[in-house]
Amino acid sequence: MAKFIALRFLQGLLVLLAIYAITFFLVAATPGSPFSSERAIPPHILAQIEAFYGYDKPVLERFWTSLTNTLSGEFGPSAVYANRSVTDIIAESFPVSLKLGSISLLAALLIGIPTGIVAAVRRNTWLDYVPMSVSMAGICLPTFVMGPLLALVFGLILRLLPVSGWYGPEYIILPAATLSLYYAAYFARLTRGGMLEMLNQDFVRTARAKGVPEWTIVWKHCLKGGLIPAITFLGPALAGIISGSFVVETIFQIPGLGQWFVKAALNRDDFLILGLTVLFAALIVVMNLLADIAHVALNPRLKYE
């Protein structure tokens, strides 16, 4: 078990390093520099700025400097937003995105998993058909359709909730609903599938033949195995919620990291792109590691393999 976690941890570090390198070289391969955009800057000043940020050095040397800086927690300056370091921007916006993202993920789990369990246990009844049809709708309506539609209905027509900004708790509801609906639907379908597979196993028949009550069979005998598909999807779900936040933060004008990332990508803000990508990737790698650990904890057979 400890060996397994250590192995996965090392693997995660390697993956992070690879992501960092790919991002760096991808950004470096982009023609021009962050400063060669719209504003007309005299060439000698541009050269000075580029030298200041190290853009005149060979690319490998820049990679090395950048990597060591990042490892010491220094992400560098924002090339576009003068006087602000990437660390500042992250410190300011990360709490916003963290709040939105964790509420969304939690909501997705709390809605999706119980729905999936009930649908599996009561399969082929309306408790199965209705939530599964709704979940299909949730999967087919992407965030950028769902977001504007929710904003239109609840914000502009019914005037129940605010549609832009980030001030009080009521500002979280629509964006979090937009973000979590897809994943709630996905978790519901995964859980239903996992639970159905468990409920069709021979050992369920054994439990019935022992006189175990139906819901005890569900909780005690099937839940562990039935949750595995949902658990393994945690990492991809977090990745999806992060990229979904790019859209949702744009739609609802939320000052989070997602909006910054889109701006950074559009403006070629190299250090900001790199810093945010590494941060996102690290979050996802950690989530995958946690999911792996949970998977092993749930499935006794994995421990011995």
Partner: peptide, 15 residues
């Protein structure tokens, strides 16, 4: 389990 969307975004920006 990787944030692929980010790479697609970067690819589109870069090339």
């Amino acid at each position: 389990a990787l944030p692929f969307t980010i790479f697609v975004i970067l690819l589109m920006v870069a090339f």
